Amino acid sequence: MTATTPEALAEAVAEAAAAVLPSVSPLVLGPVQPGSPHVAAAFAGGAVAELDGGVPGVVAVLVGRELVDALASSPLGGLEVAAAVQPALDAAAHRLGARARAASTLDLEADDFDIAAVLGGEFSTVPLIGTGIAGAVLVPATTLAGAREPITADPAAEAVAAPVEPAAAPEPFVPAFGTGPAAVVPRGLELLHGVDMEVTVELGRTRMTVRDLLALTPGAVLELDRAAGSPADLLVNGRLVARGEVVVVDEDFGLRVTEILDAAATA
């Protein structure tokens, strides 16, 4: 692999995760540190994902209070930390030559929480610095030892599309873990601008008995609870946020939004 030492690989994994982790400002890597049982005390939330593809172990990402609070107070309803962190875990797994399974949210405030147990033993920690310690990427030693070449469908295309490396920035000051998180300026909804959301367009609904459901055959017509020409619903993570008209764009269906619903109406 390009990264020839565990420290260099851990840094490369953290860099990949930092590029897609929700943050108002670009995240800078702190120095790679040996894992500590006190690392979780510096953060408010996190998620972990098991790896597939022949690479052993898991990868975890911890995040600060401002992101956790922004997710909890989203106008679209409370959002899971695991969902917000999944793209970062996917990027980290890719750099290890693996694929991340669905992330699980970590309960850092549980009395019996043990980060070393979650990671399966010794691990490396790479702080992610924004306006304070915004997050950290945790990679077990066994995972670093079993890493493979990054997965890519077209290595040549990926090399051409690779961004130009920016000039090296001065190494930021990183306080020791266990001393508590650095003070940050609340950013609210801005932190969620890069979070992926599941968007669904619903034409209508109906109710059926199991007997009728099992009797369905190709060509059967279902009557929905909506009249022809009525607007379709636009749902984000299952929450109604807008309505619009179904249109066709280059042989694909689309939705022309005609009405945005306020938060009070959708609560």
Rank of each mutant, 00 (worst) to 15 (best):
T258H: 05
P163L: 11
L213W: 10
V246S: 02
G238W: 02
T142K: 04
V185G: 12
T258A: 07
T152N: 07
Q86K: 06
A70N: 09
V118H: 04
R226L: 07
S230Q: 14
G57V: 08
A215Q: 13
L203F: 10
L71T: 05
T152Y: 05
P6Q: 10
A134N: 04
V126S: 01
R226Y: 10
A168K: 07
G78Q: 11
L62M: 09
A41V: 11
T2H: 10
T200S: 15
I115D: 04
L79P: 01
L213E: 14
G219Y: 12
M197A: 12
E223G: 12
L235F: 03
A3K: 01
L89Y: 12
G121C: 13
V195K: 04
P22G: 10
E158H: 08
E259L: 14
A267R: 15
A220D: 13
A134Y: 01
E11R: 06
A227E: 15
P170S: 14
F113S: 08
V20A: 04
A93Q: 01
A167S: 13
A153H: 09
L67Y: 06
A242N: 11
L27C: 07
P166L: 09
D262A: 08
Q86R: 08
T217I: 11
A141F: 00
T258E: 08
A100N: 06
V118R: 09
A3L: 08
V185M: 12
D111I: 05
D262Q: 04
L9P: 00
L138I: 05
P26W: 07
A228E: 15
A19F: 09
G188H: 12
V236A: 06
G30D: 10
E158G: 03
A263H: 08
A145Y: 12
A10S: 05
L144S: 01
S25G: 08
V249H: 08
A82E: 13
P31I: 07
L192T: 06
F177N: 01
P22A: 09
L29K: 00
V164F: 06
A8F: 03
V195N: 04
S25D: 15
V236T: 05
T131W: 11
V246A: 10
G178C: 12
R226H: 11
E198S: 15
D107P: 02
V185N: 14
L222F: 10
A117I: 06
E259T: 14
E190R: 15
S124P: 00
A3N: 03
A3D: 05
A16M: 04
S36L: 12
A263N: 06
V174F: 03
A49V: 09
T2F: 13
V184P: 00
